[in-house]
Design a protein around this nucleic acid. Structure first.
Lengths: 220, 220
DNA sequence: CTTAGTATTTGAACATGTTCAGAATTGTCC
DNA sequence: GGACAATTCTGAACATGTTCAAATACTAAG
C-alpha cells in the first residue's frame, strides 16, 4: 500500500507512452492517444511529464539507471581496454535494442539548446556518467598519450559511442548488421590508433590535436 | 512585365519569412506572422511552399545557387589543396554568415528521413554538388592515398565541412572565433594527416579504414 | 466522521502547422 | 468585350502539443 498510487499512475502513463511510441513512432504518437492508452485524460499526462519530449527523457533516465550497475559490474571484472570499451558500448546496444527507434527522438536533435540533445544541459548528468564509464575504461589500461591530449580521451570515446548509436538508430540493414560491422572495425581502428599514437613521427599532429581539443572543450 | 506576378509573390513570401526567421528564430516564427509580413493570407504561403521547412529548403537552394559559381571560380584559379579547400569552406561561411542561425533549422536534424537533414534525399542534390566541389579540390593535388580509400576522400571532406558548419551554427563565442580557430587547426591537421597517411607504418589502419568506409558508404 | 487542506485528474481552450473548398484574379480564345 | 479555364489567394477548419481553472479524490487533524 505504500507504493503511492501516483507512482503507479506515472508508471502506467510512461508504459503506455512507450507502447504507443513503439507502435507508431515518436512523431506520429499523439498525447491524446497515450493518455487514452493509459486510461487518463491528457491533462494527467502533463501532470506527470512536462512535455512529450520529457517522456522520452524519463525513458532515457530509467534506461541509464538500469544500465549503470550492469556496466559498472562489467568494468570491474574486465581488464583490457578492449573488453572494457565493449562492456560499455555493448550494454547500450542491448538495453536500448527493444526501443531502438525511440532513440531517434533523442539523437535527432543536434541543437545543444534542445532538451533532448545529447549535448544539452538536461542530458548532462547522463552524459557525465557515460563519460565517467569511459574514464574508468581508460584508467591504467596502458594507453600512453601526450599529457595534453590524454584528459580528453574519455570525452572523445563518448563522442565515438554517440556516433555509433546514431548510425545504429538509422541503420535499416537486417538486424542492424552494418552497425555491428562498423562497431567491430572502428573499435579495432581505435585500439590500433591509440597504440600508434605514441610514435614520434606523429608529433606534429599531437600539438595540433592538443590545441584543437582545448578550443572545442576548453571553457565551454 | 514578363516577371510573372506569382514569381514576385513567392519572392516576397520567402523574403518575409527570412526576415521573420532572423528576427525571432525559426522555431518561434509563425506562419501567420510570415504571411502577414508578406501581405498575404496563410494559404498563400502554403501555395508557394509545401511547409515551413520547405521555406528553409528554398533558402538553402538559393544560397547554393549563389555560392556555386563563386566556388567554381575560386577552384579554377587555386592550385594547392589547401587553398582549394579554403575556397569551398570559406565561401560557405561567408554566404551563410548573415543567416547563420537559420542554418540551425537545417542542421538540427540528424534523421536522414527528415527533409531538412543534410543526409536526406531532399538535400541530396546540394550534397552531391558539394561533394563534387571537394572532388575537384582533391583532383591532381598530389594527395596519395591507398586506392581503396581514395574514392571516399571527397565524401569525408564533405563530412568534415558539415561538422565545421554544425559547430559554427551553435558557436556562441564572439564572432564565432572558436569555430575559426577550429577551422584553422583542423584544416592543418587534415593536410598533415593526408601527407602522413602514405607511410607504411600505418598500413594496418589502411585496410581497416577501407573496409569500414565500404560498410558505411557501400550500397547505401 | 467532518473538515480543511493537498494531491490528482479532468476536459475545454489555446497556439500553431497544415489543409481545403471556394472566392478572386488572370489568361485565352472567339 | 465576353465566356470559359487556369492560376492565385483567402480564411475558416482541423490536428496536435500544451495550459489551466475547476472538479474530484485523498489525507490528516480534531
Amino acid at each position: 500500500m505504500k507504493i503511492k498510487k501516483s507512482e503507479e499512475t506515472r508508471r502506467r502513463i510512461l508504459e503506455a507512452a512507450l507502447s504507443v511510441f513503439r507502435e507508431r513512432g515518436f512523431e506520429r504518437a499523439t498525447m491524446r492517444e497515450i493518455a487514452t492508452a493509459a486510461g487518463v485524460a491528457v491533462g494527467a499526462a502533463y501532470y506527470y511529464f512536462e512535455s512529450k519530449d520529457a517522456i522520452v527523457m524519463a525513458f532515457y533516465e530509467r534506461s541509464q539507471g538500469e544500465m549503470r550497475p550492469q556496466i559498472e559490474a562489467l568494468l570491474e571484472r574486465s581488464k583490457t581496454l578492449e573488453s572494457r570499451l565493449r562492456a560499455v558500448i555493448s550494454t547500450k546496444f542491448e538495453c536500448f535494442g527493444p526501443n531502438r527507434k525511440l532513440l531517434g527522438a533523442l539523437s535527432a536533435h543536434s541543437d545543444p539548446e534542445h532538451p533532448l540533445s545529447p549535448f544539452s544541459k538536461e542530458t548532462s548528468e547522463i552524459r557525465e556518467q557515460d563519460i565517467g564509464f569511459f574514464a574508468r575504461a581508460v584508467a591504467d589500461s596502458g594507453v600512453k598519450l601526450p599529457p595534453s591530449i590524454e584528459p580528453y580521451l574519455p570525452r572523445l570515446l563518448w563522442m565515438y559511442q554517440m556516433g555509433l548509436i546514431l548510425f545504429w538508430v538509422y541503420d535499416h540493414s537486417e538486424e542492424q548488421r552494418r552497425t555491428m560491422v562498423l562497431y567491430e572495425k572502428t573499435l579495432k581502428m581505435i585500439l590500433v590508433a591509440l597504440k600508434l599514437a605514441g610514435i614520434p613521427l606523429l608529433r606534429p599532429l599531437h600539438r595540433l590535436a592538443a590545441e584543437l581539443l582545448e578550443v572545442v572543450y576548453g571553457s565551454e
